[in-house]
Simulated assay, not measured.
Amino acid sequence: MPNTPFLRIGTRGSALALWQAEHVRDLVCRVHGVGRDDIHIEIIRTTGDRITDRPLSEAGGKGLFTKEIEEALICGAVDIAVHSAKDMPTELPDGLELSAFLEREDVRDAYLSPVAERLVDLPRGAVVGSASLRRQAQIQRRRPDIKVINFRGNVGTRLDKLANGDVDATMLAFAGMKRLGIADQVTELLSEDEFLPALGQGCVCVESRIGDERTAGLMAGIDDEAARAELLTERAFLRMLDGSCRTPIAGLARFARGKISFRGLVLQHDGSAVVETELAGKAEDAEAIGTVAGEKVLQEAGEDFMAAVRAHG
């Protein structure tokens, strides 16, 4: 049928989500020689977009940003779903899989503030806004004397709140700021060694139906080897720790010359205690590396530590 799109992409409607969907469209067009008008982008509003009055950790966690898009994918209304990899639950709905991981952007966190040029220079009692429990815990680990409050909204909303003086500082993923063309607003880039990013940060992933061989073939053409190895490691670590928006977990895998090096940690919510591990191995063993790293953290942390983390969440 002449009016049938070559591919239908499901996405959230935020500026960053639309950038990601358009990026996937452009990659598919370039790799497979398709016109942009032949690939349709379908905007789907998710539960996470509707909830603005409380932390996502209280409302159900990561799946709130994917549920409606995945429902559209399962029923065949779209052919693929495009997500930020860090938003993806470790367990996907039956019949769905992650079929592509795109080349990864800068994974670092960006600190933004009109009050102090560096996070460490904020005055005592300053207020930092963040919706991420990982960021909240790591901020308080470095600066237990400042106050961290929940800070919801898309990138534009949070920047407006910062400009209006609702908080003294906030933090965003640098990758998203680069993609939106606002990297010049960053006050300080935090080293990944000192401030470990979210698992999956900086990576866009594609979800599709298991058994859809045509779509799988199209996605294989845009899949990035390094990003796939890194994300398989990180997601396995997250799965072992039962990671969600309710647990302050951070980690980063790096792929180089067929090998993976990984560092991951879990924190108490106030940053007062942390358990971390490092592990390396062959990239072909990516999931096993992440799993073993998770097991090591659980063993070292002990039941009391993890129970306290989960009870708080």
Rank of each mutant, 00 (worst) to 15 (best):
A116S: 08
P89Y: 03
G13P: 09
P93Q: 14
G76A: 04
Q20E: 15
K67I: 13
N3A: 01
E22T: 08
A72K: 12
E71Y: 02
P123C: 03
H23A: 05
Q20T: 02
E58V: 03
D37E: 14
R118W: 11
R118T: 15
A72T: 06
R108T: 12
D79A: 03
A85G: 07
T46F: 01
V127G: 06
V24Y: 00
E103Q: 13
R50C: 12
D109W: 15
D106K: 05
D121P: 05
E117C: 02
H32Q: 13
R108I: 10
L16K: 02
V31L: 13
E97R: 10
L7N: 01
F101N: 12
F65C: 11
G95R: 01
H40W: 08
P93M: 12
L7K: 00
K86Q: 10
A81V: 09
E97S: 08
G10W: 00
L98H: 07
D49M: 05
A17R: 08
L92K: 00
A15K: 15
G10M: 01
E71L: 11
G125P: 11
D106H: 04
A59H: 10
L64H: 06
P93D: 15
V24P: 01
E91K: 05
S130G: 05
E91W: 00
M1K: 04
D106L: 09
I41P: 00
H23D: 12
G33T: 02
V128T: 11
F6K: 11
E58N: 06
H23T: 07
C29P: 10
E103W: 01
R50Y: 01
E42A: 06
G48W: 11
D38I: 02
H23S: 07
S113V: 01
A116W: 04
M1E: 08
T11V: 08
L119N: 09
L7P: 04
V78S: 01
A17C: 09
L16I: 01
E117Q: 10
V24Q: 00
R36I: 08
R50F: 04
R124Y: 11
E105Q: 08
L16Y: 00
P55I: 08
L122M: 10
G48Y: 10
I51H: 07
Y111G: 06
L119E: 12
P93Y: 09
M88Y: 07
P5D: 03
C29W: 05
T4A: 13
G95C: 04
M88P: 05
T47V: 11
E97N: 03
D53K: 06
L122H: 04
V34C: 11
L16N: 03
D26M: 02
L119F: 10
Y111D: 12
G10E: 04
A126T: 02
V24W: 00
E22Y: 03
G125M: 14
L122Q: 08
D121E: 14
A72M: 09
E103D: 13
D49G: 00
L16A: 02
V82A: 06
V115R: 05
E68I: 05
A59V: 10
E58M: 09
H32A: 12
V128H: 11
